[in-house]
Computed example of a mutant assay.
Amino acid sequence: MSEFLTRGWNVAIPEVDIGDDIFVVQDDNGTLRRVQVKTSTSTQRQNSFSAKFNVPLPQLRNIANIPVHYVFIVRNNEQWTKPLIIRQDYLLDYLQNFKIGTEHNGNLTLYFSYMEDRVECSGIDFSKYVSDFTDFPLIED
């Protein structure tokens, strides 16, 4: 939430939890973004670390007028990684066209591998989504 605030966006926590963790709003023009935050702790590998995330499939497949932005963040060695920020329709496209993750019990389980110079899921490079605040541009006063 603090990252969005420092970028000049207003942040609100919904009173009723139906899948959105926070709403991020650009006050001057009313632009609304829905955000779902997914956190995980790291599992150390030889030259990397990995993290597991579960995304509810009904939520992922239900694309509304305002798509959800998933923010995946990992606790590694007592620090948070830079967030992976990916829009719902893009993530769904990866599932449908590249068969990322595993579908089980109504969830899509994703394993992200964090290497020195890239982040992968199911062999697909997700590095371009690291700290991708494209849909949350810095708002100047």
Rank of each mutant, 00 (worst) to 15 (best):
L57G: 05
P58A: 09
P58Y: 10
Q59H: 02
Q59C: 08
L60V: 11
R61N: 01
R61L: 06
N62P: 11
I63K: 01
I63Q: 00
N65R: 01
N65K: 02
I66Q: 04
P67V: 05
P67D: 02
P67K: 07
V68M: 05
V68Y: 09
V68D: 01
H69V: 03
Y70I: 05
Y70H: 03
V71L: 08
V71F: 00
I73C: 13
V74L: 08
N76A: 15
N76Y: 15
N77T: 14
N77E: 15
E78K: 09
Q79I: 15
Q79R: 15
Q79K: 15
W80E: 12
W80G: 04
W80H: 13
T81H: 04
T81F: 01
K82P: 08
K82G: 03
P83Q: 02
P83H: 03
P83A: 00
L84F: 04
I85H: 01
R87A: 07
Q88A: 13
Q88R: 02
D89L: 09
L91S: 05
L91W: 04
L92H: 09
L92Y: 09
D93Q: 09
D93L: 12
Y94T: 03
Y94Q: 13
L95T: 03
L95V: 05
L95E: 03
Q96V: 04
I100R: 06
I100P: 06
I100D: 03
G101C: 07
G101A: 12
E103C: 12
N105T: 14
N105R: 08
G106M: 08
N107S: 07
L108R: 00
